[in-house]
């Protein structure tokens, strides 16, 4: 009897405490919400809201002013069946993707694996190779426009000392414009990739290298069987990121060629801007923007599926 009375009193006391604590706890949650509210609001207005309305506009023939007329999936039908400029731009995005999944990766892996064992001067090399990455795109573009000039550039100077054939208008020829832009973009990009690979390599246990050296492994074997597996997660992540970025590229194409000559270096990113602001087809531009996100989404999906299947990516 007495026991239960004590218990009852105890329970009542607990209940009273809970009752007292509840408004305070609620106000604590409220305070926590207040702290995230401002940034959340800005994010919704700038990113999430317009992203959702992009779905609606992509199904209209909106010009950017006045009312939008709902046209269903006409814009997407136009993308798939009619629009040759879209198809060319998309192909160029794929070429861009192929370029960026090979050239910067080879350069960065090469440099990082040569830099990893270096103690003296390692920091200097890392910094020097990273510097182009912090330059603004307009400057990088301007530097290389001069260096690639068909009248004064590097090609012309090489021609004077007997190395012929490089004094071309690299940016002005339809067959070389896109790859030249990719070359320039890569010049500032690969150092970033190198720094990431280097950081991953420095996390590999030195014991592994020591052991392989005792076994008489060659440098190539070391690279192939220790370094490469050791940084595999980083490589996989960067393949994912580079693939996504390749569908979104804009700056360098816009600045160096504007998509030309004759659309030969057009990519989806520049096409969106042209349709939205030069040709006043905002609805269609929204559809192209949506398709770009769709491709980025496909890349992510492929990665998730591969990982589910047990690939270590």
């Amino acid at each position: 009897m007495q026991d239960s009375a004590v218990q009852r009193r105890g329970r009542a006391g607990e209940r009273a405490e809970v009752a007292r604590a509840r408004p305070r706890r609620r106000s604590k949650k409220f305070v926590a919400l207040l702290f995230v509210l401002p940034i959340l609001l800005i994010n919704v207005i700038v990113i999430i809201g317009p992203s959702i309305s992009a779905f609606y506009y992509s199904m209209t023939d909106w010009s950017g002013v006045g009312a939008a007329r709902f046209v269903g999936i006409d814009n997407f039908r136009r993308i798939i069946f009619d629009d040759i400029t879209y198809r060319e731009a998309f192909t160029n995005n794929l070429i861009w993707l192929a370029f960026f999944l090979t050239v910067p990766f080879v350069l960065a892996l090469l440099a990082a694996s040569f830099l990893a064992p270096i103690r003296k001067g390692g920091l200097f090399f890392r910094t020097a190779l990273f510097i182009p990455y912090v330059l603004p795109s307009v400057i990088v573009a301007s530097i290389w426009r001069n260096l690639l000039s068909p009248t004064l550039g590097v090609g012309v100077q090489l021609d004077k000392i007997g190395i012929r054939g490089l004094d071309q208008a690299w940016l002005g020829r339809p067959d070389s414009a896109l790859l030249t832009v990719a070359f320039v973009d890569n010049w500032r990009f690969w150092g970033f990739l190198m720094v990431l690979f280097l950081a991953a390599m420095q996390n590999i246990s030195p014991d592994l290298y020591e052991a392989s050296r005792l076994d008489g492994a060659t440098r190539w074997q070391e690279f192939r069987f220790i370094t490469l597996p050791g940084i595999r997660p980083t490589i996989a992540l960067m393949i994912l990121m580079v693939s996504i970025w390749s569908f979104l590229v804009f700056d360098y194409v816009w600045i160096l060629t504007g998509g030309g000559p004759a659309g030969s270096s057009e990519v989806l990113g520049t096409l969106v801007i042209k349709y939205a602001f030069n040709r006043f087809q905002a609805g269609y531009a929204a559809a192209i923007g949506l398709s770009m996100s769709f491709f980025a989404g496909i890349v992510i999906t492929i990665f998730v599926v591969l990982r589910r299947r047990g690939w270590e990516v």
């Binding site: 990113i47 999430i48 992203s51 804009f250 929204a286 770009m292 996100s293 992510i300």
Partner: peptide, 18 residues
């Protein structure tokens, strides 16, 4: 995460007119 991974081109056009 979603906000960070949405490409600018997706919301650029509606955002501009807004």
């Amino acid at each position: 995460l979603i906000g960070a991974s949405l490409p600018i081109q997706l919301f650029l056009v509606p955002l501009f007119f807004l």
